[in-house]
Amino acid sequence: RFRLSPAARNILEKHSLDASQGTATGPRGIFTKEDALKLVQLKQTGK
């Protein structure tokens, strides 16, 4: 289970993504908004 920032949680839910597909870069291993946006971008480019 990942620790998600509220913004990251919202983005992941909106795009039906799972945090385990990305890398948490925030302090103390928190999955940040920026991490979520990177994951969305990867999904949109098909990689």
Rank of each mutant, 00 (worst) to 15 (best):
S5D: 12
K38A: 12
S5Y: 00
S5E: 15
F31P: 10
L37K: 12
T32D: 02
F2I: 13
N10G: 13
E34L: 05
N10C: 12
T23I: 13
Q44T: 05
L37S: 09
V40R: 05
S16M: 01
Q44E: 14
S5G: 03
L4C: 12
D18Q: 12
I30M: 15
P27C: 08
P6T: 12
S5Q: 06
K43R: 09
F31A: 05
A36S: 04
F31T: 11
L39F: 01
K14L: 13
N10D: 15
T32R: 01
L39P: 07
A24H: 05
T25P: 03
A36Y: 00
T45K: 06
A8H: 03
E13M: 02
K33C: 06
P27K: 11
F2Y: 13
D35S: 01
K38E: 07
K33R: 11
L42I: 08
R3Y: 15
K33N: 05
S16Q: 14
K14D: 11
D35P: 04
A19F: 03
A8D: 07
E34I: 02
A24Q: 03
K14V: 10
K33E: 14
G26K: 03
T45F: 11
G46T: 13
T25E: 01
P6A: 14
K14S: 09
G46Y: 15
S20L: 07
R9M: 09
S5R: 00
K43Q: 13
L42M: 12
I11E: 04
G22T: 03
A36K: 03
L39K: 03
S20Q: 09
Q21L: 13
G22P: 02
G29E: 10
K47Y: 15
E34R: 08
G22R: 01
F2S: 09
T45L: 11
R1G: 15
S20Y: 00
L37V: 11
R3E: 03
T45G: 15
E34P: 01
H15K: 06
L39Q: 02
L12K: 04
Q21D: 10
L37P: 03
L4Y: 12
G29W: 00
R3D: 03
I30F: 11
G22W: 01
A24L: 04
A24R: 04
G46I: 01
K47A: 15
G22D: 03
L42C: 14
T23C: 10
G29K: 04
V40I: 06
G22K: 02
R28P: 06
R9L: 07
F31G: 10
A24W: 01
R1Q: 07
F31Y: 07
G26S: 02
I30V: 09
T32M: 00
I30K: 08
K38L: 01
F2E: 08
P27S: 10
A7I: 09
Q44W: 02
R9S: 09
A8F: 02
E34N: 01
S16V: 02
Q21K: 07
Q44N: 07
L12M: 09
E34K: 13
K14N: 13
D18K: 15
E13K: 12
E34Y: 05
I30Y: 08
G46N: 12
N10K: 13
E13T: 05
N10S: 14
A8V: 02
A7W: 00
F31V: 07
R3V: 14
L4R: 03
Q44C: 07
L4P: 07
